[in-house]
Write a protein that binds this DNA or RNA. Structure first.
Lengths: 148, 148
DNA sequence: CTTGACTCTGTAGTGTACTTGAGGGTGCAC
DNA sequence: GTGCACCCTCAAGTACACTACAGAGTCAAG
């Protein structure tokens, strides 16, 4: 008989299965555990193998996405810790607002960069070989983010 | 007599002045030079000191901004090389379009992340201590970017 | 009961992006 | 002419984020 009355589903995934589903390496998962980005999982009592619930895959995908977006592991851990720490919901909100500001600044800068690159691509005549005419230098070196 | 007839202004900044103006370290500038992100500058014939034109400051600021936005030095060099390489303006445009796609993807993901964080902050009751009620877990671990 | 894929711990190596240090030369004010 | 801040090269060190390896145990199939 399987316990169906438990409030949470028992963890059934091995580290290898989690790794394949989240498209990361097994060593990366153990590394994240050491670094506090993943909670220490339950262990199989006889083998000592790690056992994960499905939700861990989403967490790993979140970490991967945050990384792509230029968040450091430390920052990502802070994001994840919003729910784990000894924090009140209010302090959680404050931390979230800080992160939102950072995210908005990144979006803003990326939009400026996009504009510059689009202007560049549009104005670059496909036929010309004259690189001196390219508006790249102006777009890239002329400055486009927040100044000071 | 100073040569005022030259087509370009002669480089007058020492590496230290450039570093202070661009808010980077002197060693970082030399490092960028080694890595091909900055052209080899002219040298003072007697001392061998590097001499930079003003424009180098904007270039360093561009590098800093690109870095903040999650571009690697290699990618940043590729952006800068759009104007230096043995490329036609057409190939430059193609490279720029590739970069634009990457930038747009980053913006998209950041906007999703912002939405999730805003939802989180809005729904988090400032007074409550019950972290279980926080919509963070759902927002952060429930997945929000491109899936597959 | 062996074989092979998988897991464990612990340590060491890799790539990126700097940063620091050694050992020395330069430039200018006093 | 002697400090002192600045510059030079080259080599080594640091922090981050993995990644690989050694040596050993586990598990399921045949």
């Amino acid at each position: 008989m399987i316990d169906m009355s438990s409030s949470r589903p028992s963890p059934t995934l091995t580290i290898g299965k989690v790794a394949r589903r989240a498209d990361v390496g097994v060593e990366t998962i153990r590394f994240y555990e050491r670094e506090g980005l993943l909670p220490e999982p339950e262990r199989d009592p006889s083998s000592g193998y790690r056992r994960y619930p499905e939700i861990i895959v989403a967490r790993l995908q979140f970490i991967a996405r945050a990384k792509e977006l230029g968040f450091t592991l430390r920052e990502t851990r802070e994001l994840l810790d919003l729910r784990n720490g000894p924090a009140t919901c209010g302090s959680v909100r404050a931390r979230a607002n800080e992160k939102i500001e950072g995210v908005r600044r990144k979006i803003h800068d990326l939009q400026r960069m996009e504009e510059a690159l689009v202007a560049l691509a549009d104005e670059c005549p496909a036929a010309s070989n004259a690189l001196d005419d390219c508006p790249i230098l102006a777009a890239l070196e002329g400055g486009f983010g927040r100044e000071g």
